[in-house]
Amino acid sequence: MTDELEMRQVYCAKLIELSKADENIVVLEADLMSANGTKNFFKEVPEKAFNVGIAEANMIGVAAGMATFGKIPFAATFAPFATRRCYDQIAISVAYSKLPVKIVGTDPGVCAEVNGGTHMSFEDMGIMRGICDMVCFEPTDATMMSKAMKQIAYNGKPTYVRLFRKKAEKVFDDSLDFQLGKAIEIKDGKDVTLFASGIMVDRAIKASELLASDGISAKVVNIHTWKPIDEEAIISSAKATGAVVVCENHSIRNGLSSAVSEVLVQNFPVPAEFVGINERFGEVGKNAYLSEKFGITTEDIVKAAKKAVSRKG
């Protein structure tokens, strides 16, 4: 079963599957094939697998050059190195050049755990969504990742995938109708909408259950594609519930909170609360410890939802 797998196992298995059907699928790593789970691809499809060594900027440029030959390169490394370390290469050699390179940043935010502050990217989606035409996607669980890979490969766009590489909490079953760019309503509600992404989706669902016991009906919407963002889903949810909470394992500045706010202020402003990283650098620790310290737990979502509801006119 897909949902028994780690996200990186799904990533690798889908790459192998895609490469069997399409000779243009190529995989690049910068000395993290073991960490990112693509070792099997290197073993099974060695001629399409390129480990460039610890040189991320070059990896992005090499991927761009391959894309000019019609290749569909997937280049992965830890999220901070996949984004902020080679930002100009991504902006110019990939996006400005209109080359559909797929950049995969693993272990986002608190998921970097004991790799600590140097490896803990809270700004990766923010800087990537600032690049013109860049598609920014954060899968929720293994089922979604499995369904997303083909769409990512063939969307014809430079794309950033923010990938928690280990075992994600199961949210979806095989009946999931996944479309890149289309938000998913997981649970309907009428008092407040919880917009969530990545590891925060499971927490938002749990928060909605706690809120229900306090008499608050919360709608839960998974915004997996931060760009292009599903404006219609955001506006209709805000209209239906009159208040929103954005839940992200990322800085609220230029993160999903900003992206949702941009849509709301232009279309249908409602009280909004943000559960995300607020002006903090990361540090070593387990996910649960860091989530509590940085204020992104289920309980933080419950508190924020109550506050959002109380702010309604």
Binding site: V26, T68, G70, A91, I92
Partner: peptide, 29 residues
């Protein structure tokens, strides 16, 4: 993307050789 006959965008210095390597690898493939 602007000029017919140009094979790679450049201007932010230092990036062209990486793209050339990607092309050389793809050509071999």
């Amino acid at each position: 993307n602007k000029t017919v006959g140009i094979d790679m965008t450049a201007g932010s210095l230092g990036q062209g050789l990486s793209a050339g390597i990607g092309m050389a690898l793809a050509a071999k493939l």
